[in-house]
Design a protein around this nucleic acid. Structure first.
Lengths: 145, 145
DNA sequence: GTTATTGCAAATTATTTGCATATAA
DNA sequence: TTATATGCAAATAATTTGCAATAAC
């Protein structure tokens, strides 16, 4: 079994465990999410899911994405410009660097920043529920310092 | 002259300097932006601007907000849940802590985090254009550690 | 057999735009 | 005077929802 199949199956089990019915359409979407290494939007996921199962409608993509997000199986991002984009949630926590020119997304993680964020919340009398850190960047043109 | 009047006038001058016409409606919106210490959305700004000048339409609010943002006079935020929210840009740079219960926004600044962000971008071969750091928090219930 | 789920189309929400008229400079 | 800006209403874009039909368990 490939990693992608494993990943899709884990998502299936997460849904089953919650008593949600595993329909043909949901399976198609799970498969697509499992094999997507990028951060596609709802339309793109619809397109990819239809390649797996012709009968998947955009409405079902949206409905299922909501369920999957509630289950914590996927993450929803609202990067600047355009609609929401999604990714499987089975990766360790990370933040995003977005190439403002191409829309490409690089994932990164900084424990120091994570820690500082928690400290700041505490300072103001809050506990951190979740956070959003997005770096909008441009590729450095040639001249490395 | 109050601080708020000063602030509104600075915005006016920023617009004038860019050759944009200073209309009655824009003045009303500038005044409202200048005296708003919070982060209102377009609808709320429209409501407030109409209190100053009945003739301000929502379309003009949106059009003017776009101009003001292009001029760098205001900042547009896309906090979770709901539409864009705006604030005057004459404050030193800061990030936002959003109370997930009430929607309240606390402004904060961490030079350490700012610095770490720049370092991360550099590591990946990018230069930071701008960033978004939002802490979604819940008020700590009583028991301070 | 039930009840959740689906596709479709219509509805919403936030925002933008075409156009004839009004107005700032 | 003359080009920019405005209000209004219609147009988009992304997402949600009502409903009768369908399919998972």
């Amino acid at each position: 079994m490939t990693d992608i199949e494993k990943r899709a199956q884990e998502m299936e089990e997460a849904l089953r465990a919650d008593g949600v019915r595993l329909t043909r359409q949901r399976s198609a979407l799970l498969q697509v999410l499992a094999e997507s290494g990028d951060h596609p939007d709802a339309n793109e996921l619809h397109r990819r899911a239809q390649a797996v199962d012709e009968s998947v409608s955009l409405a079902t993509v949206y409905r299922t994405l909501t369920v999957l997000e509630d289950q914590g199986v996927i993450h929803r991002h609202a990067f600047e410009g355009g609609g929401a984009r999604f990714e499987a949630a089975d990766m360790p926590h990370h933040d995003h660097l977005i190439d403002v020119e191409t829309g490409d997304v690089v994932e990164f993680r900084s424990d120091k920043i994570e820690q500082l964020q928690a400290e700041i919340a505490r300072e103001y009398g809050y506990e951190l529920v979740h956070h959003k850190l997005e770096l909008y960047c441009r590729k450095t043109s040639g001249n490395g310092s």
